[in-house]
């Protein structure tokens, strides 16, 4: 695998995760628990879609086969998608969404903090811009962690259930393979073990402060790096891609 190929693959991993979690958040539009949250969730979804657009556009350039961000977003199938499994999980109730966002936002926060000093100028520039946005996202989800954890008995239970259900998808966030090895050597991406240390520390602190328990999961799910997803992704892509695919080559 060349550095170029590794970079393309890595950009898909980052871009797809943002695109898919942005899609999930946008499903809340008009159905949020309170108007302020409708606004917040749409706004955050927009940040993710913007971030995905930058990353996929750059992925297309790196690949050099004439695919732009839309070709990558709309014309790849499930097995070609590289988003983390946690990002495609359905919204569930609002506590479940908050649990998913908290676990992922914390990951993204520490990962992008490292990516800011990437030796690839474009990745570094995208990370600098995105990290500012992610800082707000993480603040937003962390506040809800406290509110639900230490709010009512019902909210506490709902959030704990959300964390328990999603915990099995967290370990693959830190799995590394040949792609990581090549790019770490070039100083383009960080060692995810470093990100893992920061993630664990922060997640444990917030969960404790929110009077919740760290879930115990025996089995860890993985597979996104090889495009092995949960059944949810196929439906999500069918919905997302159908207009684009129904009109091949059309301009919008």
């Amino acid at each position: 695998m060349t550095v170029q190929e590794a970079k393309f693959e890595y950009l898909l991993r980052l871009g797809d995760s943002s695109l898919i979690i942005g899609h999930r958040l946008s499903e809340w539009c008009g159905h949020g628990p309170i108007l302020e949250e409708d606004i917040a969730l749409i706004n955050i979804a927009l940040d993710f879609v913007g971030n995905a657009t930058s990353l996929l556009a750059y992925a297309g350039q790196v690949e050099g086969k004439g695919r732009d961000e839309d070709a990558l977003a709309y014309l790849r199938d499930e097995r070609e998608y590289r988003n983390l499994l946690i990002t495609e999980q359905p919204n569930g109730d609002f506590a479940n969404t908050i649990a998913r966002q908290f676990l992922f936002d914390t990951y993204m926060y520490f990962l992008y903090e490292e990516l800011k000093s990437s030796k690839d100028e474009t990745i570094s520039a995208i990370a600098v811009k995105s990290h500012k946005e992610i800082t707000y996202h993480l603040r937003h989800t962390t506040e809800w962690m406290y509110r639900f954890g230490d709010g009512t008995v019902e909210s506490h239970e709902r959030l704990q259930n959300g964390l328990n259900d999603l915990w099995m998808y967290t370990s693959e966030m830190f799995d590394m393979d040949e792609v990581d090895a090549i790019l770490i050597k070039e100083g383009i991406v960080p060692d995810l073990n470093k990100v893992k240390v920061s993630w664990e520390k922060r997640v444990h602190e917030v969960i404790a402060e929110a009077t919740l328990q760290i879930p115990v999961t025996v089995f860890k799910q993985k597979g996104s790096k090889e495009g092995k997803h949960s059944e949810h992704l196929g439906f999500l892509l069918a919905e997302m891609q159908y207009v684009h695919r129904a009109h091949p080559g059309a301009k919008w």
Partner: peptide, 25 residues
């Protein structure tokens, strides 16, 4: 929003609907 035909249109629609929610508030 989830079916917008390209990423640019998706972002614009998200921003627009967010504006409408803001007007409501």
């Amino acid at each position: 929003i989830t079916r917008a035909p390209n990423l640019r249109r998706k972002a614009i629609l998200l921003a627009k609907v967010q504006d409408e929610a803001g007007h409501g508030l």
